[in-house]
């Protein structure tokens, strides 16, 4: 009898795992995926180590999708690989943008298809004016001045104060990041990859950035948000958790965040901050179950 019980408990756990995996891999069933990664593995430049290991997930069109994970988990590497930077080449797997295989396309080709990346620490370039920089990626340059002003307003910069500035050291870190966002928005891409837009910013500024992300979303652009901060990620509809280069989970963002907290053993923090999409906290038992699964309860 005890053998049978053990057998049933193992079988039940097996079934639950299958259901869990099925649900995690089908969270976007019926939705159009703008970006899709399939079995992507990215090595270090010398090829001796693997930074990102066999990752697959999709990004729904029109959503804010956060990729989270601790420092060094491979998030930025993934962002650069999706954008097609020269030194970031996957050794296996495919990347699809709007159904097109872009794995072997150049950075410029990918940008022309309708994707761009706003850097964590954008460069300071003497002599390049803010309007010229913002206008670089505009496909239609008619009414350029007006479009530049509009992009500056979206990122909450007063146009009059910036149209005669250059993107040099005279801009603060926060101002430079906003100009970078404005340049990305002015392109009117379908996908903006934001690499750690929160780094080096204070809390008040971060709140402002969250509003900007929502404005971008309302312009029917999809955001892939690379971050390791839960407060930035909370603006996201969906999330993907990467842990030591491995894909752990892609789901609605609060569930992903809960899994992140469970892996990191941050239960009190998790209880304080995590809400489901309808504004309610996760059920305590559910939180305990996730932490138990990760062995951090």
């Amino acid at each position: 009898m005890s053998i049978n019980l053990d057998f049933y408990s193992i079988f039940l756990k097996y079934l639950l795992n299958i259901v869990f995996i099925y649900l995690n891999n089908n969270h976007f069933e019926g939705f159009k995926l703008l970006l899709e990664l399939k079995d992507i593995t990215i090595p270090t430049e010398d090829g001796k180590c693997v930074i990102v290991n066999n990752i697959s997930f999709g990004v729904k069109e029109g959503s804010i999708h956060a990729v989270i994970g601790p420092n060094g988990s491979g998030k930025s590497t993934l962002a650069y690989t999706i954008m097609g930077l020269q030194t970031f080449n996957p050794t296996q797997g495919k990347i699809y943008f709007d159904g097109i295989d872009i794995t072997n396309m150049s950075l410029t080709q990918r940008a022309k298809l309708g994707m761009t990346l706003a850097w964590q620490e954008p460069a300071r370039i003497d002599g390049l004016t803010v309007p010229d920089y913002i206008a670089l990626g505009m496909k239609d340059k008619t009414n350029m001045k007006e479009k530049v002003r509009e992009a500056l307003e979206i990122v909450n910069l007063e146009p009059e104060r910036y149209i005669n500035r250059t993107i040099d050291e005279s801009l603060s870190g926060g101002e430079r990041k906003r100009v970078e966002l404005a340049a990305a928005i002015a392109m009117r891409p379908r996908l903006i990859i934001l690499d750690e837009p929160d780094s080096g910013l204070d809390m008040i500024v971060i709140e402002d950035f969250l509003n900007i992300f929502n404005k971008i979303k309302n312009l029917e652009m999809t955001i892939l948000l690379i971050t390791h901060r839960e407060d930035i990620g909370m603006v996201a509809d969906y999330g993907t958790l990467i842990w030591r280069g491995n894909h752990i989970l892609t789901d609605e963002f609060p569930k992903v965040m809960l899994r992140y907290c469970a892996k990191a053993g941050l239960k009190e923090f998790c209880k304080r901050t995590l809400f489901t999409n309808d504004g309610k906290c996760f059920d305590e038992d559910y939180i305990d179950r996730i932490f138990r699964e990760e062995g951090t309860l």
Partner: peptide, 13 residues
């Protein structure tokens, strides 16, 4: 610097 070029190329140049 390659990063400068990458930033501009990510805008379609």
């Amino acid at each position: 610097p390659q990063k400068w070029l990458d930033e501009l190329m990510a805008k379609g140049l």
